[in-house]
Amino acid sequence: MKRDFQPAGYMVANKRNGTIYIGVTSNLPQRIAQHRDGIIDGFTKRHGCKMLVWFELHATMKFAILREKQLKGGSRSKKLALIEGANPRWLDLFAEICA
């Protein structure tokens, strides 16, 4: 995933079953690095959400933003099920997207 522009939706967490943040970006490796380094003040920095636990790539930013809104409007149990289905051990997927 070396492209500079690749729309993606993602979830970062502070620990397994902990606080979850849902976001959208056009450069997933760069954005997750920003979360991990605490560069940007806000929710993720305050809550220590640094682990990439789920992501999906999209063809356009429009689709990525629509999916982000859908996820943010859903229940916590649906978010947990999405993470558990793709990443049952809640591993930090950052290395996977930087490979």
Rank of each mutant, 00 (worst) to 15 (best):
L82N: 04
I97E: 04
A13D: 01
M51P: 00
K50A: 01
D92Y: 10
S75Q: 11
D4R: 04
Q34F: 00
L82D: 08
I22V: 15
G73I: 02
K79S: 09
E68S: 02
D4G: 08
L80K: 09
D37F: 00
G73P: 13
L28Y: 06
K2M: 09
Q30G: 05
Q30A: 12
R46E: 15
R76S: 02
G38L: 05
L82Q: 12
G85C: 04
A99D: 13
V53M: 02
L57N: 09
S26H: 13
M51A: 06
M1R: 12
P7R: 12
K69T: 14
F55D: 03
T44L: 01
D92P: 02
I20G: 01
Q70H: 12
K15D: 10
F5E: 04
L52D: 00
G42Y: 05
P29H: 08
S77W: 08
M51G: 00
G18C: 07
G85K: 12
A8E: 03
A99G: 14
S26M: 12
C98N: 15
Q30H: 10
L52E: 01
P7N: 11
E68L: 03
R46M: 10
A13S: 14
E56K: 13
I97M: 06
M11L: 15
E84I: 07
K69F: 05
K50P: 00
G42C: 08
N14C: 10
P88L: 07
A99F: 03
A13C: 11
L91D: 14
L57C: 01
K2R: 12
G38R: 06
S26P: 08
F63M: 12
R36A: 07
N17G: 03
G9L: 09
Y10K: 02
T19F: 10
W54Q: 02
L66I: 03
V53T: 04
G85V: 01
E68H: 08
I39W: 00
F63T: 15
F63Y: 10
Y10I: 04
K15C: 10
V24P: 00
P29W: 03
A8N: 08
K69W: 05
A86G: 08
R3S: 13
D92T: 07
V12D: 02
E84Q: 05
T25A: 01
M1T: 11
I40E: 09
A99T: 12
N17A: 02
R46V: 04
L66S: 10
R3N: 12
K78Y: 12
T19N: 11
L71D: 04
N17W: 07
F94V: 13
D37V: 00
S26N: 14
M11K: 07
I40M: 04
F5D: 04
Q34R: 08
F5C: 02
P29E: 10
F55N: 07
L57I: 06
L57Y: 15
R46F: 08
V53N: 01
N17Q: 07
D41G: 09
A59S: 12
I39S: 13
M11N: 05
C49K: 04
Y10C: 01
M51H: 08
F94I: 10
K45P: 04
L93S: 07
H35K: 05
N87F: 02
Q30N: 08
D4N: 07
W90F: 14
H58P: 00
Q70I: 09
L91N: 14
R31L: 03
S26Q: 14
G18A: 09
I65W: 03
I83D: 05
K69L: 11
Q70N: 07
T44N: 06
C98M: 08
